[in-house]
Design a protein around this nucleic acid. Structure first.
Lengths: 219, 219
DNA sequence: CCGCCCATGGGGGAAGACACCGATCTTCGA
DNA sequence: TCGAAGATCGGTGTCTTCCCCCATGGGCGG
């Protein structure tokens, strides 16, 4: 008898208990098989490069490298590898970032577990994107814009700005951040202002929640 | 043949995917059986009152009622029901709050899945507490203090202060909070100051992360 | 080459956050 | 009944945040 070819999956999430649960869900399917597990983004990249895997399922928020960063890195180094982003949050921004990072799907942890299984199959069939119902409208917008040749919404923040966001969300004052980055307090404040304007936020509290959602800092 | 009596478990977590994973882990054990699932704290309380369950596993951070609130409520209404707290964070404060809420165990999502199974069994055997290794020292402190008749560290914040924390972490200014709670701005600022002092924090950013860890607000 | 974005730096000022001081009133348990 | 704790409100003052304005230099694409 022939053994059906299973999709070999790399599962990356920083919570072993969650990982184990997802693994059981996936392994229960005849066509799916988890062959590797990673606890952070960097480990995920290493394992994906050294192991025979067809699909990487990455949690958005992970230590060292976030899922988005890991996905972008993997797309660069192994373009044929499919990736699925797994997220706690139904956020337009991450969704587009996931698209940009080359992910083949974006699945919410608040979705039914069967949705993840379907997302895996869709990704392996080469279907461009399986998405939660809540962001269906975003997809249409995206496709519209893409068909008109408009730019894909990129990460609105520059690398330097991301550093500032991280430090702000860790509770540091402008003075401390200036000292850390070895720039003037004025520059820090300029960055912070610019960031708030870009994101449509008004203060460090909203920015903190944004940083946590993005996995830039731990709560 | 006799059917061994299984521990009937209520599983409460706001992420269906996580819930499903935990369910598979638990149902794989011969002596454990998940008989009900809840997506928030209030639903968990309702189900625990209307269903024959022996043990409730509650995620700390859930909508409507947090796991800690739900546990306290259940202890009041069904003292014989055992509860296990499930948390993303290895925090001394929650740990003690879980104790105070009458939980029989505190398990981290970053622990191995088998730890959860062991925690279930320990809870049903009536053992006082199964704990992650990281908080073992805290347990000793706690037992020491308890044996000397000292007060169990309670929730440091009053109900009113919790309201303020929630609103602060949602990004509202003192003026807005004052308007919401129909008190003066001065009182809001007094509460906030008092909260920061109690928790040993310096500003709204740290307070925001605290509120998220406690499940008072969504990131 | 010129405009645009990024990163850097600064002045000034309004508003908010935060600390420290004071107070009254209620509730609740010892 | 007395004290402790919570909730309420006020003044004063300092520091930070946040928003305007400004400028310079480097890189990059049209």
């Amino acid at each position: 008898m022939t053994v059906p070819l299973k999709t070999r999956i790399l599962l990356a999430d920083d919570h072993p208990m969650v990982r184990r649960g997802l693994r059981m869900v996936l392994d229960a399917e005849p066509d799916l098989e988890v062959v590797a597990e990673a606890g952070d983004g960097a480990e995920a990249v290493e394992l994906a490069m050294s192991t025979e895997v067809d699909l990487a399922i990455l949690d958005v928020a992970m230590p060292r490298l976030t899922g988005l960063q890991a996905s972008a890195e993997l797309k660069r180094r192994r373009p044929e590898l499919r990736t699925l982003m797994l997220s706690m949050y139904d956020s337009e921004q991450y969704f587009f970032e996931a698209l940009k990072a080359g992910a083949s799907g974006y699945v919410l942890k608040s979705a039914a577990d069967q949705d993840l299984v379907e997302a895996c199959r869709a990704a392996m069939r080469g279907e461009p994107f399986l998405y939660p119902a809540a962001v269906a409208a975003l997809i249409r917008d995206y496709l519209d814009r893409a068909s008109r040749g408009e730019a894909v919404p990129a990460d609105p923040l520059t690398p330097r700005e991301l550093e500032v966001v991280k430090l702000v969300a860790e509770g540091h004052s402008s003075d401390e951040i200036a000292a850390t980055l070895v720039i003037s307090k004025k520059t820090v404040e300029h960055h912070r202002s610019h960031i708030l304007e870009k994101l449509g936020m008004r203060d460090r509290v909203e920015l903190t929640r944004y940083a946590i959602r993005r996995g830039l800092v731990e709560p």
